[in-house]
Amino acid sequence: MKDSFWFPIVFMLIIVLIFTGILSVMYRLSESKIEAYLTETYERRILGTLAQAIADADAGSADDITAAYPESFHKYVQSMEDKGFERKVYRAVVHDSTVAYCFEIGGKGLWGSMRALVSTSTDFRTIYSLAIVDQQETPGLGARIEEEWFLDQFRNRLFVVNPDSSDDVTQKYEFIAEAQSPVNDSQLKRVTGATITSDSVIKMLQDEFNYIYKYYGTKANEKD
């Protein structure tokens, strides 16, 4: 019977059904848990990038604000709908005025795309904080762009230095080795052994800031 014509086909079908069945059930059961976890991580990240700006405008420290998730998220953070703008935008509102914006940006790394959240000042020129959402770089190498020392380089950094340029409005950077210290504001430390990934982060920021600034910066007066 094993070698008849129909048996293999029927056998295959049964096995396929059993296993994809098990997988589908497992997946559907876990789906909401996974969704909830992803949403929570994402919202916490947004809150994290905006926390300092909120703390400066209101009371408490950035850490208190981040720890008070989800209450602080719903109290201070609003998502903005803007049909003409192709990115997700959030803003931190304290006492009815906006203190900071947060954009979801994307770019290409060495192995795949990367997404990040960047919070900016209300004139869209200064980066308050950068957080990586998603990246596919090499673990232990490129993936180290998620480490604090690397991301901290972008904290409170004036990024738009040529606001009137029709070309690139951002600061030009050069990379130095991880072990060195920057001598001026146009130097950034790259991750050792991950030049391309480090470059990709800067390229993503520069490209996205050009897009953001040219859209919102010029409309700055229209945004409240």
């Binding site: 098990i22 997988l23 497992m26 997946y27 876990s30 848990k33 996974i34 976890y37």
Partner: peptide
């Protein structure tokens, strides 16, 4: 299965 279990 291992992956889905861990993710959840």
């Amino acid at each position: 299965i291992v992956d889905v279990f861990l993710k959840a």
